[in-house]
Design a binder for these strands. Structure first.
Length: 437
RNA sequence: GCGGAUGUAGCUCAGUUGGUUAGAGCGCUGGAUUGUGGCUCCGGAGGCCGUGGGUUCGACCCCCAUCAUUCGCCCCA
């Protein structure tokens, strides 16, 4: 049986052109995030399994985490998300870090599940977190960052929508206003999370099924559904509207609009899967109906650092997967044609290696990226190789060039050839490299 | 974990109601062309028809299983 050449299920090989795209995406992200004063960190891919058991629902840890036992009998997980790790790191140096702390990372994460569009087993996820700020100015900043990232990729506000809600607000509505029990709140949250996927009648039936007989008598399900249809904070009933959490959401949205992030809306159905969120939650959606899923999501989780036995640190963060980002950029035609890193393909004419390599190294020392053919093949084969690799320039080095110290530089797109000194060639090539992007 | 779709050359795909040695375009490769790619012409390599079983005189084709890819469900970090 021959070995398979396929990558592991749900994981991707990055051939040079794929890696180039990844480098472009991550490079753009880093540039924007660092512009806001965030610092990059990283951590091991492996963590003790306990780290995830402490904070997440059982099902996710048991069924969707890659876990194994190491040779010392320790239970180990391949990280399925970064939030527990970064919380651990902050907790470990709780006293000595300077707050507010602004950190980001682009880790690769693994989840064991069936691959589908926008969801693979291995993906890279931008994580941006602020530690030590307890007002919604932190949420404000993170949403501005996510908006700035897409702006830097060339996206416009008609292409995506940022939806904001508050866990505190939902807790108030479900617990105090609708008088649901903790179990009911949990079930209702899951249901609300997939509201847009269900036909209204089915949603109503499921909402009804959560309720006790008394609640059915006083129409609690209908009240809930009525609230979920509301699109504006000022349309909420007054007791809710006047609650501190509703005011906070409203203030956040107003401030973002003021800051020209005009595509932020209130959406009462945004819940987020995890229980650890404690305040504002938000998600970003592609407006293209063919790619209509959340590509970025986050919120406030003030309790996580405290799980490590230190004073809690208020925290807001978001995660953004590379697959969903790439789908978005492809869907809106925002990916530029990326060039190879190689500036020059050196074609050797005749048996000139010994003297040609001196010139080539000179070009390299002056900053050009040069690949040499080295095969001794006929020139047409050497040129074809350069073209196939999408290298923009070929330089011909033969006895004549070596003697004159002038080398023939061929632009492989236009076919134009000129003789230049080595230093001139390097400056031409660098000009081309810096042309746009 | 559940359901649908699809597996034929490196890629995109044909392949007649089940009938000999399995096809095209592109790509790859050699030459025409001993200091110059794309155009043209001539040659060449490359297939256990995803895999295993079954039905049949005979299977790329029909049936079963399995694996893989993909879209959706569940779930969502």
């Amino acid at each position: 049986m021959a070995l398979s050449t396929q990558p592991y299920k749900g994981a991707r090989d990055f051939y040079p052109e794929d890696k180039r795209l990844q480098k472009y995406m991550f490079g753009t992200i880093r540039k924007v995030v660092e512009r806001f004063g965030y610092e990059e960190y990283d951590a091991p891919v492996l963590e003790p399994l306990d780290l995830y058991l402490a904070k997440t629902g059982d099902e996710i840890v048991n069924e969707q985490t890659y876990a194994f036992e190491d040779r010392g009998g320790r239970k180990v997980a391949i990280r399925p998300e970064m939030t527990p790790t970064v919380s651990r790191m902050v907790a470990a140096k709780r006293q000595e870090l300077g707050y507010p702390l602004r950190w980001y990372s682009i880790p690769n994460l693994w989840r064991y599940e069936r691959p589908q569009r926008g969801r693979l087993r291995e993906h890279w996820q931008l994580n941006v977190d602020v530690f030590g700020l307890d007002t919604m100015l932190a949420e404000m900043e993170l949403i501005q960052i996510s908006d700035a990232i897409l702006k830097d990729f060339g996206a416009t506000h008609d292409m995506y929508t940022i939806k904001v809600n508050s866990r505190k607000l939902m807790d108030f509505i479900m617990k105090d206003y609708l008088k649901l029990s903790d179990v009911q709140i949990h079930m209702a949250s899951k249901l609300i999370d997939r509201m847009h996927k269900l036909p209204l009648a089915e949603f109503e039936a499921e909402a009804e099924s959560i309720m006790t007989p008394t609640q059915r008598d006083n129409g609690t399900a209908n009240k809930l559904i009525g609230l979920l249809k509301i699109k504006q904070i000022h349309h909420l009933p007054e007791v809710i509207r006047e609650h501190e959490s509703a005011k906070e959401v409203k203030k956040l949205i107003d401030m973002l609009h003021e800051a020209r992030v005009t595509n932020v809306v209130f959406d009462i159905t945004i819940m987020r899967g995890f229980d650890y969120y404690t305040g504002i939650v938000f998600e970003m959606f592609d407006n293209d109906p063919d790619n209509n899923r959340a590509m970025m999501g986050g919120g406030r989780y003030d309790g996580l650092v405290g799980l490590f036995g230190v004073e809690p640190v208020p925290t807001v963060g978001f995660g953004w997967g590379d697959v969903t980002l790439q789908n978005f950029l492809e869907g809106h035609n925002l990916l530029p044609a990326l060039r190879t890193e190689t500036d020059i393909y050196a074609v050797l004419v005749g048996d000139v290696y010994d003297s040609a390599i001196k010139v080539i190294n000179e070009l390299r020392e002056m900053g050009a990226n040069v690949a040499v053919d080295l095969t001794g093949r006929k020139m047409d084969k050497q040129i074809k190789t350069a073209v196939k690799k999408n290298i923009h320039y070929a330089v011909f080095i033969g006895e004549k060039e070596i003697k004159d110290e002038l080398y023939k530089l061929r632009n492989l797109t236009t076919g134009i050839e000129e003789r230049h000194s080595a230093s001139r060639i390097v400056s031409i090539v660098k000009d081309y490299r810096d042309e746009d992007l």
